[in-house]
């Protein structure tokens, strides 16, 4: 049903919610167009009044890759898996990481930066972090083109499994970003400390994810602990799918996936529970 289009009025009951709030996915479905509109707005506005425009989507990961290549490839002479050249080794990891970090950052601030929408109108608040996370996909797609170019240059041909594995690991990155962002955005409504903690959190998270280095440097007995970081699974998965190095999906990836789904589910419930107070606290 759609309370918004039906000519006959539908009855709405407004009352204090008690206990754990239901997820109310029906309302989210009714407002699905708003998700697209918010994504579209973010994309339209993102590179407005910049001289380089959408080129930033390419420059950001490419410049990071160049810095990494200089520091870890040339100076520290970091070992890569299977003799893959360092530039493409790090760029393959920087792609999903860039998506994740941008999504986490903008989604965690999505409620506070749309304060007037929250205090003036009703809509499922989930729309905001969801749109922020999904809005990063366009930048990801643009940056991916550079990777395709690099693969041709280094003559690396991915196997057919890349066709399902890349979307699957991308989904894992999105689920993780959304799950963490649901927690952080809801906390951010009351405690703006989140804004200060975020840069530190994403920097720390980047170091515990095998972006600049290979996960092989982690000793065997720590691999299980290491897989608790879903982004480690995502990065290893990308390298396996596109460069053909590292292990195919195994138990460790399964642990990563379970962890990120747990973060998402708990995040959804926490968010829904806090949602009723957003307009009063923000």
């Amino acid at each position: 049903m759609s309370e918004l289009t039906k000519p006959h009025p539908t009855t709405i009951y407004i009352k204090p919610s008690t206990g754990l709030a239901a997820l109310n996915l029906r309302d989210l479905w009714i407002y699905r167009e708003l998700v697209w509109f918010m994504i579209w707005r973010d994309i339209k506005v993102r590179y407005k009044q910049t001289a380089l425009g959408a080129a930033w989507a390419i420059l950001q990961p490419v410049l990071t890759m160049l810095v990494f290549n200089f520091l870890f490839g040339n100076i520290a002479r970091m070992q890569t898996d299977g003799g893959i050249p360092y530039p493409i080794f790090s760029y393959t990891a920087l792609l999903p990481w860039g998506l994740f970090a941008t999504a986490l950052n903008s989604a965690s601030r999505s409620l506070t930066s749309n304060q007037n929408m929250i205090t003036k109108t009703y809509f499922p608040r989930l729309v905001l972090p969801m749109a922020s996370v999904l809005g990063g996909l366009l930048d990801f797609a643009i940056a991916f083109l550079v990777l395709v170019g690099m693969m041709m240059y280094y003559r690396i041909t991915p196997g057919l499994h890349a066709l399902w594995a890349v979307p699957a690991f991308l989904l894992l990155a999105i689920i993780t970003a959304l799950g963490v962002a649901l927690w952080l955005s809801a906390i951010n409504v009351q405690y703006r400390d989140v804004g200060y903690a975020l840069p530190f959190l994403s920097q720390f998270w980047m170091f515990v994810t095998p972006i600049a280095y290979s996960s092989k440097v982690i000793s065997e007995q720590w691999q299980i602990v290491y897989s608790l970081n879903p982004m480690a699974g995502v990065v290893n998965g990308f390298r396996w799918a596109l460069l053909g190095v590292g292990n195919p999906p195994n138990l460790l990836i399964a642990i990563s996936a379970i962890i990120s789904v747990l973060i998402l589910i708990s995040g959804l419930f926490y968010f829904r529970n806090m949602e009723r107070t957003f307009a009063d606290l923000i």
Partner: peptide, 24 residues
């Protein structure tokens, strides 16, 4: 936009608000 602490409201139909125009 906000929930009541107690009590209920029953509304028949879609509520449009001009609480503040130009939201978003």
């Amino acid at each position: 936009v906000t929930e009541p602490t107690r009590g209920t409201v029953t509304v028949r139909g879609r509520v449009g608000s001009l609480l503040e125009v130009g939201t978003g």
